[in-house]
Design a binder for these strands. Structure first.
Length: 576
RNA sequence: CGGGAUGUAGCGCAGCCCGGUAGCGCGCUUCGUUCGGGACGAAGAAGUCGCCGGUUCAAAUCCGGCCAUCCCGACCA
């Protein structure tokens, strides 16, 4: 493509709307334009990247026996009522009404549609397993779209769904998909990690998220050298140190005037925050529960919600605390409490002589021993893991990193097939709901994640496997007929070898073209200028390293081919 | 939805407090000079000042309402 003919509207200045590098650079490099909050147009450079990512995805999925289909974006309300999700999915479901007042959703995901397809056309165990996927625009009415295409309301997603006669077959496909996903992100040139993820309300037995490592990632991940990695909200906690060897002392009520917070109380009583027990009152549906955790730790609401099997978990208000627990916010305590369920974090088991509220303003108890003084309805892991916590597998300290979630895989089980009465006939003739798996990759988010992972102060650095072009050919002297004729020939030569070239033939100054080339981030630049031309040489620059070498005219094709091979080899060595 | 901010030419911004002529930089068009890291000069095109209403002789500017966008939070099967 000649740059003079290409639609690549680059910008010199940082757009006001963008905050993070990928968003800024996609706009500046002429890839992306905004239509509304969380709604974007993808211009030619972006579309080419999307195509390359999609091609890798298709190749890897087809290789493990997946088949591509295309399902509707528009979903009738009745379909979503079959699964019960018309009401459950909530305001994130983009809804609309047609001229006949019939209601529809714009598909945020396609479990319902695919399950319906299976229900009618996959009738025998002989047809199983089967794995179907599509690449399509998805709609989610995000409460707050953010960071360009990172969290947008309309985005391109690959979604796959597998159907099985039993869990064993599901597990096999799940493992195949896990490997395929690892290969896909590696082939895209990205450093990614699979982490244990929360299955949450979707149910099922197992789920992994694939995270691309990047400082600006929205998710925090804890990982261990032994290979364990988990989303922070899902990371299990192993035993924290506790003071179990102390002798139990007599319960003692002490005055703590106006000291409410852990910091205030621990400072006032001269003890470490971990000697305190926080009593947190939640409203779970119509019930109130108290959760006890150590004073120096934060509660993990995801763990609480999963334990309680509750979708709408909220903190109790001060008024609700007063009414339903007969207590005072800031001084709530578990001792003697009988009217609500009390659940304690596992790390409190065995602790001795702790400090809690008294349910009375301005007083706390010293020397609370939960097993002696409180009726605990259940012990459970409730707290948020932190950097430095011990690995639940090997016990060594874990460290944290930030990442961007680019894919997630689930073993769904029979949740949707049962809800929608989608069954196959087994060997013995009985109708059995399918075991299902579902598997997503955010295509447009993967593109943004690549930029987050690979950029510098000058612009984007594309991995060659998803770069919009392999090579940018820069003619520094477009007014010079000899040089221009030479560049035209190089352009032809490379194209004849199926090397995808962006040819900057514009009548602009050298600096202008260099800036644009660095911004756009094509991995290899061929620079043709007067001085080198007189010596029958061109300059070759590697965008990633900034390294520049010269190359004789005769050697250009060889040199470029071998550079491209090298760049691919660097990527392929990480593909397992 | 709570908190904060912004809306003026394609982009980035000033002007608003203190009402009266709409301005700067980039980009765009034309011409000339320049030509290896976002050149210079000259000429030019381009704006219902987010929308609606109010106050006023007069509103980008003051007042009210609405809309949109961005950031923090809640949220993210």
């Amino acid at each position: 493509m000649r740059f003079s003919q290409a639609f690549i509207p680059t910008l010199k200045e940082k757009p006001a709307e963008a905050e993070i590098p990928s968003h800024t650079l996609m706009i500046r490099s002429g890839m992306l334009r905004k239509l509304g909050s969380g709604i974007y147009s993808y211009l030619p450079l972006a579309k080419k990247v999307i195509n390359y990512i999609e091609t890798i995805v298709r190749e890897e999925l087809n290789a493990i026996g997946c088949q591509e289909i295309l399902m509707p974006v528009l979903h009738p309300r009745e379909l979503w009522e079959m699964s019960g999700r018309w009401n459950v999915y909530g305001p994130e479901l983009m809804r609309l009404t047609d001229r006949h007042d019939r209601e529809f959703a714009l598909g945020p995901t396609h479990e319902e549609v695919i399950t319906l397809i299976a229900k009618y056309d996959i009738k025998s165990y002989k047809q199983l397993p089967i794995n179907l996927y599509q690449i399509q625009t998805k709609f989610r009415d995000e409460i707050r779209p953010r960071f360009g295409v990172m969290r947008s309301r309309e985005f391109i997603m690959k979604d796959a769904y597998s159907f099985h006669k039993d869990k064993k077959s599901l597990k096999k496909t799940y493992d195949d998909m896990y490997k395929a996903y690892s290969r896909i992100f590696a082939r895209c040139g990205l450093k990614s990690v699979a982490v244990e993820a929360d299955v949450g309300a979707i149910g099922g037995s197992s789920s992994h998220e694939f995270m691309v490592l990047a400082e600006t990632g929205e998710s925090e991940v804890l990982h261990c050298k032994c290979g364990y990695a988990a989303n922070l909200e899902n990371a299990k906690i192993t035993a924290l140190d506790c003071n179990e060897h102390e002798e139990m002392k007599q319960l003692e009520k002490v005055s703590t005037p106006d000291r409410k917070s852990v910091e205030e109380v621990s400072a006032f009583l001269g003890v470490l925050p971990k000697k305190l027990i926080k009593t947190i009152v939640y409203k779970a549906g119509d019930n109130f529960v108290a959760i006890l955790i150590r004073g120096d730790r934060e509660i993990n609401p995801v763990k609480v919600a999963n334990f309680l099997q509750c979708v709408n978990l909220e903190f109790a208000t001060e008024d609700e605390i007063a009414e339903f627990t007969k207590s005072t916010a800031g001084f709530v305590g578990p001792v003697g409490k009988k009217n609500i369920k009390i659940y304690a974090d596992l790390n409190l088991k065995g602790t001795k002589n702790m400090i809690t509220g008294v349910d009375e303003k301005d007083y706390h108890y010293r020397n609370v021993n939960l097993e002696r003084d409180v009726h605990i309805d259940a012990w459970q892991d409730f707290i948020q893991a932190e950097n430095g916590d011990k690995c639940p597998r090997c016990g060594k300290a874990m460290s944290s990193f930030r990442g961007i979630e680019v894919g997630q895989i689930f073993q769904l089980g029979d949740k949707y097939s049962t809800a929608m009465e989608a069954t196959y006939d087994a060997e013995n003739g009985s109708a059995v709901p399918y075991q299902m798996g579902c598997y997503g990759i955010g295509i447009t988010r993967t593109m943004a994640a690549s930029i987050e992972q690979f950029h510098d102060k000058d612009g984007i650095i594309w991995p060659i496997s998803i770069s919009p072009y392999d090579v940018e050919l820069i003619n520094l002297s477009p007014s010079d007929e000899d040089i221009t004729e030479f560049c035209d020939n190089v352009y032809e030569l490379l194209q004849d070898e199926f090397i995808d070239v962006l040819y900057d033939d514009r009548d602009e100054k050298a600096g202008f073209k260099f800036k644009d080339a660095d911004l756009i981030g094509i991995p290899i630049h061929i620079i043709v200028g007067k001085k080198n031309f007189e010596n029958e040489m061109v300059e070759i620059k590697i965008r990633k390293t900034g390294e520049k070498t010269t190359c004789a005219f005769d050697d250009i094709l060889n040199k470029i081919s071998s550079l491209i091979d090298t760049l691919y080899e660097e990527i392929d060595k990480n593909v397992t």
